[in-house]
């Protein structure tokens, strides 16, 4: 698969993309360079990056079929494991305020008239070194996952995870 020019792989890194579901770069719109570190192995991934989004993945990571969806930015440290179908999303994509949201829905529709898209909240996500993110888990906006933490399968992480902690559940709690 041909990678976008601003998606760079470090030395010894591998990228395997699959086109049977979503094309991995169908919504790769960032103007910035998206960097993947040395010896990182990505086996299936989907990148939905807005124009201003930053993406940085460190060295020696292992990633399977993860979804990276960003408007602000996602930073992944070194030696991070991201499990099958984990979703990392740093934005809301629609305003929370009901009045604004009614107008945003019209702007998104097939008959928008003069309505324009409304601003929404997005905050960057940081995943520090040696973190383990389980399959089917979800990391939401503004979260920082501390060094060596473990996110159990299916967890929905909405707040910061302290270094070395283990979190579980929806919403995720430290156990």
């Amino acid at each position: 698969m041909k990678l976008p020019d601003n998606f760079t792989l470090g030395e010894g890194a591998t990228f395997q993309g699959y086109e049977d579901g979503y094309h991995p770069f169908m919504r790769f719109k960032t103007r910035h360079e998206a960097k993947v570190g040395a010896r990182t192995a990505i086996d299936g991934a989907y990148f939905n990056l807005g124009e201003a989004a930053h993406l940085e993945i460190g060295d020696d990571c292992r990633i399977w079929e993860a979804f990276f969806i960003a408007e602000a930015g996602i930073k992944v440290g070194h030696r991070v494991t991201i499990g099958w179908r984990a979703t990392i999303v740093d934005a809301d994509f629609h305003p929370v305020d009901p009045a604004e949201r009614l107008k945003d829905a019209v702007a998104c529709s097939t008959d928008p008239g003069d309505e324009k898209r409304r601003p929404f909240d997005s905050r960057p996500i940081t995943i520090e070194d040696d973190v383990w993110i389980g399959p089917l888990s979800t990391i939401l906006k503004g979260v920082r996952i501390g060094k060596g933490a473990r996110v159990e399968p299916g967890a929905v992480v909405i707040s910061d995870v302290p270094p070395g902690a283990r979190v579980l559940g929806n919403p995720a709690r430290v156990v």
Binding site: P98, L140, V156, G169, N170, P171
Partner: peptide, 21 residues
Amino acid sequence: VVSARSVVTKDVPPYSVVFGN
């Protein structure tokens, strides 16, 4: 608003945000 990954088992009142399972 029903937040991402929520499992909604009972009615959600108007103009409220629900979250979790």
